[in-house]
Amino acid sequence: MSVGDGRRPEPRYSRIVGELRQRIETGELAPGERVPSTREITRQWGVAMATATKVLTELRREGLVRAVPGVGTVVSAPERVAGPSAAPAPAPAPAAPASAPARRSTPSASATPTGSTGLTLGRIVAAAVAVADAEGLDAVSMRRVAAELGVATMSLYRHVADKDDLLVRMMDAAIGERPLPADPPPGWREPLAVAARQLWGLFRAHPWLAPAMSLTRPQLITSAMVYSEWVLGCLSGHGLDDQAAFTAHLTLLNYIRGLALNMETEREAEAQSGLDSEEWMDAQEPAFRATLEGGRYPALARLARAGYDFDLDGLFEFGLQRLLDGLAVLLDEDAPPSRA
């Protein structure tokens, strides 16, 4: 397709879907055979994880592949027209239990297995977290989690009340992955920085976590309450009452959460467009520079000429230090030289 024909170029995920579809239709990838995983797609085609996820999602939507617990995503058996001599296509043999990958678990994962499936609360939560990590929170449903585990949907309700209950348990498990140190550093500034960086790392590892967390209707997440207790304990004895200390905690929390929201929205935009943020910016650059040519925005024009290295981690650290500097003023302490 020529660049000047006025049409948008085909998204990269569509081209990859087309290639894999052709390999399946020609028999190069046979029924029951594993298709490339999201990580393999990112390596082979040089795309981001969100794009790779959209590829497998589209192939599943077309019925060309299906997820097999303990194996991965495999080519579905072709549909055949039923007839007197038609025999159903053999399904791929299930994986042996010993080959199933280890899953993260929470203290509640020690629940007694139910039935021959060995279904536990920990396995359910781990499967839901894995789906959310790979495809976003919208992809998580009771039916989808049951399919990932190879069990009936109704069997999940022996362990979780509904999807909202599952979500709270997912958040609890995700936050509990990285416990805070048993002994906080001295003072208040470094302990708050430790907690903030720890939380930022969790949001980085689980992009769905920040949008799932509510500030106005906080969920009962015990692993998150540990963070609140940590911050309040660090500020205790430094001149703030409990009300002010908790306000400081919420301000810091909402700063980190607010910045982290960009990770999930970017993943969704990338999955829908097939373009990562740099590719999208490259596509917008001609219009942006044309707008700056009029001289109405001289500061932005200088910045565009010099270039700007957009980095979420850098933004996080810069804002964190400014918030801590402001808190130092509130505590009537001299702020140390800024590190960012």
Score class of each variant (00 low, 15 high):
Leu320Thr: 07
Ala100Pro: 03
Val71Asn: 02
Ser277Leu: 14
Val55His: 03
Arg296Ser: 09
Ala271Thr: 13
Ser2Asp: 12
Leu331His: 03
Val129Ser: 02
Ala335Gly: 08
Ala248Val: 15
Gln44Arg: 15
Gly237Arg: 11
Leu261Phe: 15
Val125His: 04
Phe318Ser: 05
Arg267Phe: 12
Arg61Asp: 00
Thr291Gln: 10
Ser2Glu: 10
Tyr255Ile: 05
Ala244Asn: 07
His238Ala: 04
Gly295Glu: 00
Phe203Thr: 07
Ala130Gln: 09
Pro92Ile: 09
Ala77Ser: 12
Ala146Tyr: 04
Val151Arg: 02
Asp172Ile: 12
Leu315Phe: 06
Glu19Lys: 08
Tyr157Leu: 15
Ala139Pro: 08
Met154Val: 11
Pro186Thr: 10
Thr251Glu: 02
Gln219Asp: 08
Arg8Tyr: 01
Ala193Gln: 07
Ile175Gly: 00
Arg289Ser: 07
Phe318Thr: 09
Thr117Asp: 12
Pro336Glu: 00
Pro181Met: 00
Ala139Lys: 09
Ala127Trp: 03
Leu252Glu: 04
Asp5Glu: 07
Tyr308Ser: 10
Ala95Met: 10
Gly136Gln: 05
Ala82Asp: 05
Gly239Cys: 13
Gln284Val: 14
Asp309Trp: 11
Arg257Phe: 05
Ala130Asp: 09
Pro286Ser: 07
Leu167Glu: 08
Ala91Asp: 05
Ala126Trp: 04
Val145Met: 07
Ser214Asn: 10
Pro31Asn: 00
Pro94Lys: 09
Asp162Met: 12
